[in-house]
Design a protein around this nucleic acid. Structure first.
Lengths: 239, 239
DNA sequence: CTGTTTATTTGATCTGGCGCAAAGAAACCG
DNA sequence: CGGTTTCTTTGCGCCAGATCAAATAAACAG
């Protein structure tokens, strides 16, 4: 499970870099393990490190003044996060919590800046990574401002499926433990509403949801809801 | 009104750069004028230029599939926007529309990349600019997911005041024409609700709102609402 | 196996704020 | 200046979805 340069090459931050750059990056990183429910860093901590997940799952959450929590992203292996740690003087806008036993590569800000100095391409890659994030949050912001809960939930689940979906004979399993509360925090609603919508989808044969486990049995149906296409029920579904 | 290097130095992208870098940047830019209601670029256009506003006002808006519009940012002179244009292969996530007659400096992607090559510090500055944006949208996303309309509207108005507020003897004037519809699109609600809340605030002596014009007569009251402090009405307000 | 904790469902109730309609009111234009 | 356009207000009905309460149900600890 010790990461190699091939692993690094799969991380968007390192795309297009020469082998010796990958080797240097690997040498500059340190690896750390985190047990379930432990925190990698907290919101408002000085952002002085950059992370890449090697194994496990990490949730990035933001807390409001009155204690309400929102899940910003779920990190799966191969993803870079806390990229803001490259920038001097910043603080983390979210907290990072291991949803299960996890391993991560860590670069200090100094190490990352030294790498950038040597391989300026890294800075452009980092800009691209940030750009994707700006876009994603603008999109999600608009969704939240203009769209119904059902559609937002469909999108949240499809997003999860795209990064942690595993094909089984029953359908696409979301390969991470996820509660109704988590889904609510990802789509800006309440666990009650999530529960009701899932029950309804279950009746339409779109998903099979049990405790902390979601299987998408008819992905096209969810896509229809997310995109607002007309027909929704699964063909042959028992109504 | 022709911008000089002093103007460039005030733009966050160019912070800490040596004078000759500013001169080079100025030489690499071209200036353009836009009349009211004209578009600088459209959402989903290839992002191949970076802009800095010299004069006027520009609205960055995002349109959803079914035609609903959201205002992402209001750009005032001295602000950099469309920074995503530095990154190869991206598209603009928003449209940019001149809210009044405006002037902007424009760098092509090629020009900007050449500058970065020469002054790598630029890349780190660009990262910082993007980082601020990621944070801002994450914050606003959470607000939208967890907070009431009244508070979101208070925040939207205070945000506008911080970048386009002008002190008058009546209070802080939002120095740009802004409709109820605009405010609704900035805070994720409808123009009806905005109108009602403003009327209510007017009664509490917090603001003075007329056609396309907002004066904050008791800023502390708005802050109280934005931060959820207890007392709200203006002392001596006529109820 | 049993008690406890954590997650889920479901009914009942309530309400913030949306959407419509219609009537001002201010700006704009020929 | 008179007609038109644009912006704003306000009453009214309504409903998506939040909130509350309580009953399962699944996992877990000892």
């Amino acid at each position: 499970m010790t990461p190699d340069t091939a692993f690094l090459a799969s991380i968007s931050l390192f795309h297009g870099l020469p082998p010796q750059a990958l080797a240097a990056a690997l040498a500059a990183a340190r690896e750390a393990r985190y047990e379930e429910d432990s925190f990698l860093f907290y919101q408002d901590d000085p952002a002085d490190r950059v992370f890449a997940l090697v194994s496990g799952r990490v949730k990035l959450t933001q807390l409001s003044g009155d204690g309400q929590q929102v899940i910003m992203r779920v990190i799966t292996p191969g993803l870079l996060f806390a990229a803001i740690g490259i920038v001097a003087g910043a603080t983390y806008p979210v907290s990072a919590e291991a949803a299960e036993e996890s391993g991560a590569l860590i670069w200090t800000q100094a190490a990352m800046r030294a790498l950038i100095e040597q391989y300026p391409r890294l800075a452009l890659n980092a800009l691209a990574v940030m750009g994707v994030q700006v876009r994603e949050f603008q999109d999600r912001y608009r969704e939240l401002a203009t769209e119904r809960v059902e559609r937002r939930l469909a999108r949240a689940i499809l997003r999860l499926a795209s990064q942690a979906g595993r094909k089984t004979d029953e359908g696409v399993l979301l390969d991470l433990p996820i509660t109704r509360q988590d889904l609510a925090e990802m789509s800006g609603t309440t666990l009650y509403t999530v529960s009701r919508i899932l029950t309804q989808w279950e009746g339409q044969g779109l998903v099979h949801a049990t405790r902390e486990r979601i299987v998408i049995t008819f992905p096209h149906g969810l896509v229809s809801i997310a995109e607002d296409l007309p027909q929704r029920a699964r063909p042959n579904a028992v109504e």
